[in-house]
Simulated assay, not measured.
Amino acid sequence: MSVKHGLLALLERGPMYGYQLRAAFEESTGGTWPLNIGQVYTTLSRLERDELVRALPEGEGGQRSYEITGAGRAELALWFATPVSRGDRPRDELAIKLALALTTPGVDARAVLQTQRTATMRGLQELTRLKSRSAAPGDLAWRLVLDSMLFQAEAEVRWLDHCEASLSRYAAPPEPVPVAPEEEPSEEGARR
């Protein structure tokens, strides 16, 4: 998800200023995607430049709220109607890290796998604890985000299992160590 579309979706609820948008964004994602307030205001400036939002007059507290425009609603509707393709997602750092571990001399790829598995399992346990604590019906958005993170962690564990099995199956066998041929007894040793 882009911050741009996240802010547009939040502004569809009604006008908000930067700090409100930041808090609502973090609440909507269950705190899994913290935003820097500078990123919020930079994005708002771009949205305003592109006429997707408009700044409202300053309020009593000196805060400038923003509201979504018709063009912003059209952009948001298009975003919701367009599926997310695998190519639109960020590169998978873990897959790249493992590929490099396999091809970098002196790196123990199995240790890299095991370190990641341990961290992923810890994360999975924490997510499971969080899920058991959030049972309120109003928490559906947070529960869905949490479920997504759980499924991703479970898939990562399965992928790590697959990688480990592949390493065992396809890893080059160790180079044979040359063994010195046995010496034949000398003539002197044969006479004795």
Rank of each mutant, 00 (worst) to 15 (best):
Met1Gln: 12
Met1Lys: 08
Leu8Ile: 05
Leu11Ser: 00
Leu11Ile: 02
Glu12Val: 00
Glu12Trp: 00
Gly14Cys: 04
Met16Gln: 08
Met16Arg: 03
Leu21Tyr: 03
Leu21Asn: 00
Arg22Leu: 05
Glu26Lys: 01
Thr29Met: 04
Leu35Phe: 02
Asn36Thr: 01
Ile37Phe: 01
Ile37Asp: 01
Gly38Phe: 04
Ser45Val: 01
Glu51Trp: 03
Leu52Asn: 01
Leu52Glu: 13
Ala55Val: 08
Leu56Gln: 07
Leu56Arg: 08
Glu58His: 15
Gly59Gln: 15
Gly70Lys: 06
Arg73Cys: 05
Glu75Thr: 07
Leu76Ala: 04
Leu76His: 05
Ala77Asn: 02
Leu78Trp: 04
Leu78Val: 07
Leu78Ile: 03
Leu78Pro: 01
Thr82Cys: 03
Ser85Tyr: 03
Arg86His: 11
Arg86Trp: 07
Arg86Met: 08
Arg89Glu: 14
Arg89Trp: 02
Arg89Ser: 05
Asp92Met: 01
Leu94Ala: 14
Leu94Ile: 11
Ala95Ile: 08
Ala95Leu: 14
Lys97Ser: 11
Leu98Asn: 00
Ala99Pro: 03
Leu100Thr: 08
Ala101Lys: 04
Ala101Asp: 04
Thr104Ile: 07
Pro105Ser: 13
Gly106Leu: 10
Gly106Val: 09
Val107Asn: 04
Val107Cys: 08
Ala109Thr: 15
Ala111Arg: 10
Val112Glu: 12
Gln114Asn: 08
Thr118Asp: 05
Ala119Val: 02
Ala119Gly: 03
Met121Gln: 13
Met121Phe: 03
Met121Val: 11
Leu124Met: 13
Lys131Gln: 14
Lys131Phe: 11
Lys131His: 11
Ala135Val: 13
Ala135Met: 07
Pro137Val: 05
Gly138Met: 05
Ala141Lys: 09
Trp142Tyr: 15
Trp142Ser: 03
Leu144Ala: 10
Leu144Lys: 14
Val145Gly: 13
Asp147Gly: 13
Met149Cys: 12
Leu150Phe: 10
Gln152Val: 05
Arg158His: 13
Leu160Ala: 07
Asp161Met: 10
His162Ala: 15
His162Gln: 14
Cys163Phe: 07
Glu164Gly: 15
Leu167Cys: 08
Arg169Cys: 10
Ala171Thr: 10
Ala172Gly: 08
Glu175Trp: 09
Val177His: 12
Val177Ser: 11
Ala180Val: 13
Pro181Lys: 07
Glu183Asn: 07
Glu188Lys: 12
Gly189His: 09
Ala190Pro: 04
Arg191Ser: 14
Arg192Ile: 13
